[in-house]
Simulated scan of single mutants.
Amino acid sequence: MFTDTHCHLTHVPTGARAAIDTARADGVTTMVTVGTDLASSAECVRIAAAHEGVYAAVGIHPNDAIEATEAVLARIEDLAQHDSVVAVGETGLDWFREGAPPIRQEESFRSHIRIARDADRTLVIHDREAHDDIVRVLVDEMPLPRVVFHCFSGGRDLVETCAVNGWWMSFAGNVTFTNATPLQEAAAAVPLELLLTETDSPFLTPHPHRGKPNSPSMVAVTTAFLADLHGLGTEDMAAAVGDNARRAFALPGAPGGG
């Protein structure tokens, strides 16, 4: 019943198989496991190919954009052709951490957009304190494939921009934090048809489980929290998010998704 549109099964402490089995037992039917470099992207493809209902995203994280050489991007482009791959990313811009130089991040971002467009894969955006520049690049690169803002961190202005453009907004466990009032207000303003849930596990464990490693199972906590924000029951929110994820990632059962 639950959908985790962004997890890192290559990083969960229990290992991918145990995390998937636990998530299944807890009602998580769909997971997208996301690569952050070439090695983890290849492993995500392998994991997704071996487990029904698990899909892969492949890409180079913006903080590692210095590694996004022509040869590496060619390998990402090859991986994007696999049947189990539904997205390219996470890619984007990060002006918070001391990572790759901004010019290399933007070059890598634009290359990922091209790969996603050519492969007809969804583009998964990492946006850390870079809202205006992310939008600038996306607008400049139109027409775009399907776009998902992973771990949405903007305010109402960015919600409106995403809504106008039909970009999906995905919320992780940090929306449940007690000091996250502005993010909660943004989440409440997202049109229901553009709302997604994720864990970003093993990171961003939702309240009241902070201090423990996150896992795909905990997407249920975030789903229930978002349901309250939108005045819905948890089952209704889970159903809406499931429908949204099928469209956002062109999953089986979605129009054009096979």
Rank of each mutant, 00 (worst) to 15 (best):
H209K: 10
P206C: 08
F225M: 03
E185M: 11
L229H: 13
P216D: 07
A186Y: 07
A227N: 08
S201N: 02
T181V: 14
L196I: 04
T181D: 15
R210S: 10
T222P: 01
H207P: 00
E198R: 15
H209C: 06
A227V: 10
A227W: 10
S201D: 04
L226S: 10
T197C: 15
V175H: 05
S217N: 01
L196S: 06
M218C: 00
P191N: 14
M218K: 09
L194N: 01
N179I: 11
T176G: 03
T223A: 06
H207W: 14
S215E: 14
V221A: 06
L183G: 05
P216N: 14
P191G: 14
A188I: 08
T199A: 09
L226Y: 06
P202I: 14
L183P: 01
P216V: 05
P216A: 12
N214Q: 01
L195F: 15
L183Y: 05
T176A: 00
N214I: 03
F203D: 12
E198V: 07
T222N: 00
L183W: 05
P191T: 15
E185L: 14
M218G: 00
P182I: 03
P182A: 09
P206E: 09
A187L: 08
T223F: 04
H209L: 14
E193S: 12
E198L: 11
T223R: 02
H207M: 12
A220L: 07
G211R: 07
R210V: 13
A187C: 10
A220M: 01
V221W: 04
P216Q: 09
E193C: 07
A180T: 04
F177W: 15
L229D: 10
E185G: 08
P208I: 11
D200L: 07
T181C: 00
T181F: 02
P191E: 13
A224L: 04
A187G: 01
F225E: 03
P208T: 14
T176K: 02
V190Q: 03
V221D: 12
L195S: 05
V190E: 04
L196R: 06
V221S: 00
A189S: 15
F225C: 01
